[in-house]
Design a binder for these strands. Sequence first.
DNA 1: CCGTTGACTTTCG
DNA 2: GCGAAAGCCAACG
Length: 105
Amino acid sequence: MNEPLSARERIWQVVAAIPPGKVASYGQVARLAGLGRGARQVGHTLRDLPKGSNLPWHRVLNSQGKISLPPDSSSAKTQRHRLEAEGVEFTLSGKVKLDQFGWDA
DNA sequence: CCGTTGACTTTCG
DNA sequence: GCGAAAGCCAACG
């Protein structure tokens, strides 16, 4: 049933399955995507996202619950702005509430 | 096909 | 809590 989707496509599927107001870590997404420990690949794939992909990549953060990109990066600013718009709270440390939804254990 | 790179994660000091 | 090092995996040239 599972189509032979490439690792890159699987990541998009998992990220697209994240409901609004929730966030997931790269490692969490990588594991669900079947990459196991390819957390790094998740970030690289999201960085190379195709133009026009309605993928909520901004809901994907690192294990620290913070944005991996530099604070002066346009993507980082946009990411934080979008999370706030979805109801995600940021702490004074710049961390966000890791409200991970019930990922199928 | 091989080597390098990278939006990560975990562990040690 | 922060910094550095090692480990894993896939995309790129």
